[in-house]
Amino acid sequence: MIPFDFEYDRPGTVGEALTVFRQLDAEQKNPMFFGGGTEIISMARMGNVKTGAVVDLKAIPECRVFEYDKDRLLIGSALTLSDLVEAKRFPLLDHTAGRVADHTMQCKITFGGNLASTIIYRETVLPLLLADAVVTVATQGGLRDYKITQIFRERLQLPRGEFIVRASIEKRWLSAPYIHVKKTKNEKVDYPLLTVACLKADDKIRMAFSGLLPYPFRDLQWENLMNDKSLSFPERAEQISALAAPHLLNNLDGSAEFRKFVLNNTLIKVLQTLKGV
């Protein structure tokens, strides 16, 4: 039960969504775009979110695409995580999405909603960071394409009133060797101690993390170390862990020290599994 009122709008087109959001903003309703809504609803119940209107993006056809366009796979922001998992088109993304919350929640959480989440993990961005995704954003000036790194730094950085319509990935990434490891405190369905997603291409490992810091990230310095052939696997892991150590999260899921230990172990396993570089 949400202890306050808000208005519900479900636009059928990108244009309607932008317009209605602008109107609601003008009415000082502090509107919010609404994907799966799981986070807004649960936080609203606890009084941690207050809004006068939600704009549900799930009925916009452009946000529901899931198709190939020439050499790219287009992934609509209103697809549920379960849609991604069931379709099995981009294995790394499927695996990542399949480990966010639990299965029934995956039937409700949307891809775009997870990217825009205020909860710090936002794990579905990891494959996008690795595969140089292009993100199409609905702006007042029309649809605009950005590199993922232009609009996602720690969290989604979009001007108010804009929203993600879809992401697209070059086909060559879809079949690249990959690995996804999620480590939790003790239970499969939980927030991560760490989640690491890796893609291997041109004999190089790309890797991105969630759960280590208060935001998901890809760090090129870490990647260089990971690919440094002059170092043994344990040396690479140790140097990266040492770099990470001062910044690691320390919370109920695990201490910073334990995260460091898990990171070190996990990196070695990743290197062994991907047969190094």
């Binding site: 405190k185 003790n186 862990s241 150590a245 695990g254 201490s255 020290e257 334990f258 460091k260 230990f261 070190n264």
Partner: peptide
């Protein structure tokens, strides 16, 4: 409870 971190802490003294 015996979560892995607890065993790790008792076993190693909690230093990674």
């Amino acid at each position: 409870p015996l979560v892995p971190e607890t065993i790790w802490r008792i076993k190693t003294g909690g230093r990674a």
